[in-house]
Simulated assay, not measured.
Amino acid sequence: MPPRTPAAGSRLMQIGEAAERIGLSIRTIRHYEEAGLIVPSARSEGGFRLYTEPDLERLAVVKRMKPLGFTLDEMRDLLAVLDALATADDEERRTLLDRLGMFHAAAATRVAALRDQLAVAEEFAGTLRARLDHHGSCTT
Score class of each variant (00 low, 15 high):
Arg58Val: 08
Pro54Thr: 06
Leu59Cys: 11
Leu59Phe: 06
Glu53Lys: 15
Leu59Met: 15
Leu78Asn: 05
Met65Trp: 02
Ala35Trp: 02
Gly36Cys: 06
Val62Thr: 11
Arg30Thr: 09
Phe70Tyr: 11
Ala35Val: 05
Asp55Gln: 04
Ala84Asn: 09
Arg30Trp: 08
Pro67Val: 03
Leu78Cys: 06
Leu72Thr: 12
Ser44Pro: 15
Asp73Ala: 14
Tyr51Phe: 15
Glu33Ile: 10
Ile38Glu: 03
Pro67Ile: 00
Glu57Tyr: 08
Gly69Thr: 11
Leu56His: 12
Arg76Tyr: 07
Phe70Pro: 06
Glu33Thr: 14
Met65Phe: 05
Leu37Trp: 01
Ala88Pro: 01
Ala35Gly: 01
Arg49Ile: 05
Arg76Lys: 14
Asp90Pro: 03
Arg64Glu: 11
Thr87Arg: 08
Ala80Gly: 11
Ala35Asn: 08
Gly36Ile: 09
Gly69Ala: 02
Leu79Ile: 08
Asp90Phe: 00
Ile26Phe: 05
Pro40Tyr: 02
Ser41Phe: 09
Leu37His: 01
Arg64His: 12
Ala35Arg: 15
Leu50Asp: 05
Thr87Glu: 09
Leu37Ile: 03
Ala80Pro: 05
Tyr32Phe: 04
Pro40Ser: 00
Pro54Asn: 05
Gly69Lys: 13
Thr71His: 03
Lys66Tyr: 02
Leu82Lys: 07
Lys63Trp: 00
Leu85Lys: 07
Arg64Tyr: 02
Leu37Tyr: 00
Gly47Phe: 09
Leu50Asn: 03
Thr71Trp: 07
Pro40Asn: 00
Leu68Ala: 08
Thr52Lys: 09
Phe48Leu: 14
Met65Leu: 15
Glu33Cys: 10
Ser44Ala: 13
Thr52Arg: 12
Ala84Val: 06
Leu82Gly: 01
Ala84Tyr: 00
Met65Asn: 05
Met65Gly: 11
Val61Pro: 12
